[in-house]
Amino acid sequence: MDFTSFAKPSNVDGNNENNSTDLHFWKHVEYIENHGKDQDDYEYCMTEFLRMSGIYWGVTALDIMNQLDRLDRTSIIDFIRRCQCPVTGGFAPCEGHDPHILYTLSAIQILCIYDALNEIDCEAVVRYVSGLQQFDGSFFGDKWGEVDTRFSFCAVAILTLLGRMEGTINVDRAIKFVMSCCNQTDGGFGSKPGAESHAGLIYCCVGFLSLTQSLHLLDVDKLGWWLCERQLTSGGLNGRPEKLPDVCYSWWVLSSLTIMGRLHWISAEKLKQFILTCQDSETGGFADRTGNMPDIFHTLFGIGALSILGFEGLKAINPTLCMPQYVIDRLGIKPQILSKP
């Protein structure tokens, strides 16, 4: 148990009076643009192990805000090239680290946004991803053998973005594995067979089914019930029963409901208000909850959720791939979406 919750200084607790309905647009742009400029920063050093994803979160958020040109395309692409492992073809989060399917997806997503897939060896990526599939259809995250439904999503997302879903992996088995992680009790999905339903993993599994055109396998009524129960009186969404609301779950629950054609099942207005109270009006950026420190991860998912909710001044975002819709259109990709009943 951590005592910080008891001895918290008074300036950060209590009711937040930030009832503003404005999006601090330029503050957020500035926040993302400056993120990582101070490379001696402790946080920067501590988060090196997920740098590639950090860049993806920043690039995507800025593109959704139509400010992509604030980042240096050339140096980002150079960085990505340096992170491709010459042996396996997978991407590391940063130079000096090991490749992993999580950062491979982030790298491919950034390259797609920059229309720069030709800059890397895509065949090697395909080999890396298909080599991680197991006999039961699941995917390892890297050569050390952890299995997780997140990795199933990463695999099909990468192959879809590369246009290489055909003939590279066993899709039927992959589907079978993901469906074996569906809980009969609530219609949700966990990280492994039998694991508790979790909004982030539901996004991965629903997204996976959307990319493999198999949404008919979902029990939409059950899963929809569970997802709607994530909305709390504050308007915010949590990721599991009895948890606090969190901006990143706004994205995971909203995108899942959107893919299922059931976005209208939650109160969009209240959620919008909740997300806006999680902005940091001084530094820019979004935090997980009102009054906490902002970070780049929650900033993307705050902006992404507002985009799904149709917030003015933001580009449309694709709910399955969490990338700007125009990029998905440019690639000619059509993830499955169920129509509103």
């Binding site: 910080t4 918290k8 997920l50 969190d246 970070d295």
Partner: peptide, 16 residues
């Protein structure tokens, strides 16, 4: 000292 260092925290997410 402890009281002073207890500051805003992000409890939620472990990204990986």
């Amino acid at each position: 000292a402890f009281y002073k260092t207890a500051k805003k925290t992000n409890s939620c997410c472990n990204f990986s």
